[in-house]
Amino acid sequence: MSFLEVFQYTRQQSPIHDLDPRSKLVLAIVLAATSLMFLAIVPLLIMFLCLLPLIVAAKSLRRWATSMKGLSFLLIFIIVFNTLFSTAPNPFSHSVALTIRLVCLMTSFSLFFLTVHPDQLSQALIQMRVRFEFAFAMSMAMRYVPTLGQEAYAIMDAQKARGVELDKGNLLKRIRNIVPIIVPLIVVSIRRALSIAESMESRGFGASEHRTYMERLRFQKRDWGVVILSILILILLVYIRLFVPLPDWALLELPF
């Protein structure tokens, strides 16, 4: 599951980390939307090359690379599967483009999740007038992903000690071996959710309508810069997509 790391916050000092989460959200959405607008290899590659410096600026290149390595199996699977079954005129080019698009999409969103602390995210949502309960639920969900991972390992250990051989047997047996892992994981999570709820209520969660917050997010000049630039780029690209025919080199397809 190492590829999920790319969506997990890492504490760093970087210009990207310093941005307001709301401006990063706009940036991430624009980047993702751009990746969805084109389905040819060259524009997507250009897109990818624009994303990489951003990841470098967030000082997260290594983490990103490990995650992509973890994802490589899925990526190869997408290429092979699509090449075999796609109805597009040039299935191989098509599936390569799809794969690059997936990488671009993941990278765009990882830029957001890598650099936004769950608390910041919920604060951003609250200041965007999302109800506190929902924002809180969301940041709790993010907060508990690593805990869930640890729990999964503990459960695997416990089941291995009872003679469950997780990495042996045919595909069917391996799939069946998931049951002794997943059931305790769900049960433990539900039990924990209940106890968290109780402990929160006993500390007065939801007691008053209007909450105050220790820290409030403020938009700064650089945040406005990022937002305006993102929107300008989006408008430009939408215009190109709709009204400007792409030159031949941009529509280049692989020869096989």
């Binding site: 416990a158 000690a161 009872r162 003679g163 002794p180 059931v183 433990v188 039990r191």
Partner: peptide, 18 residues
């Protein structure tokens, strides 16, 4: 090894699933 060494865990919920 589990045939020889039986481990009983701190948290029973990590193994009960049936």
């Amino acid at each position: 090894l589990s045939r020889t060494v039986g481990l009983v865990w701190q948290n029973p919920d990590h193994q009960l699933f049936l």
